[in-house]
Design a protein around this nucleic acid. Structure first.
Lengths: 157, 157
DNA sequence: TATTGTTATACTCTATAACTATA
DNA sequence: TATAGTTATAGAGTATAACAATA
């Protein structure tokens, strides 16, 4: 064949998205099954962690960082606020804005939920060594970084 | 600190799932926006590719490979069959089974949809070199391999 | 009695447009 | 007029149970 691209790379280019989709779905399901019924779902944990890492945020910035539509962030925050894991307060400087802040209970919940996420990931990535998981994390983090204006996520290295 | 685990690895262990979820969601959205309205969604492409790579399958095996509930596979196949991309026929040996097979039109559609997926992935992974994408692909493929009894997916190397 | 595929249903997730209150 | 947040709604994705046909 006179194919200019090495065979291996062609299949690589075509197949990452299906694998991502698969792994995410299986991981979310495992996380859901692990948690107590009615507990926080993955999206809640992600939002709480974002607040923990970046501090108080307007909902607009939160939506952008999560790559969610602002209208969808509303319901997510409602659920977190009902459980007193998060506090919304008006920005005195611009009374249109809501500043969202993690509550002490929210911070505790992040720790609990993180524990569960660790268990799930340990099972999800049994095939990989610690170094490989670190590599995977790094690659994903860099890829995510370009999909958003400003998201370095859990970049606490 | 007497922590037995290096600091770097701790944050790694906690954070892969959120990154996967984020990247998958963004990728699916990009794929959806790219395609002509009413076209095949990502899950259709994944199912067609599976059939292309593994050949005719019972729906049960298909469900397992896709990590979908068999009841959800029904609707997916209905949509593919309506477009004549796939053919269901009774297994003469066991008349309970439906053998699902890719049609010639289905095979052509895989190629078209793959093209679009390539574009999406090129944008999704601009931050990564070809080698890094190959590494990512390999790591994901190995991780997926353990989440399923038998899924080596696009392992055409 | 167990298995394959199917139907029905409820709930979550996502995208979109219209609305309000502030600026 | 534009922006931050909200509401409402429709469609896609997922989990579950019950069912028919066949083994």
């Amino acid at each position: 064949m006179t194919d200019p691209t090495p065979e291996g790379l062609i299949s690589v280019r075509q197949g990452v998205l299906p694998l991502l989709e698969h792994l995410t779905r299986v991981g979310k399901r495992a996380y859901l099954n692990d948690m107590d019924p009615g507990g926080l779902r993955l999206r809640h944990l992600i939002a709480l962690r974002l607040l923990a890492e970046r501090g108080p945020q307007g909902q607009q910035g939160l939506a952008e960082a999560l790559s969610l539509d602002p209208s969808n962030v509303v319901g997510l925050l409602n659920e977190l606020e009902e459980r007193d894991l998060v506090v919304r307060r008006r920005d005195p400087a611009d009374r249109r804005r809501h500043i969202v802040e993690l509550s002490p209970a929210g911070a505790r919940e992040v720790a609990v939920a993180d524990e569960r996420a660790v268990d799930v990931e340990d099972r999800l990535f049994v095939a990989l060594t610690a170094e490989e998981r670190a590599t995977l994390f790094d690659l994903l983090r860099r890829a995510v970084g370009t999909t958003l204006p400003a998201c370095e996520f859990p970049a606490e290295d």
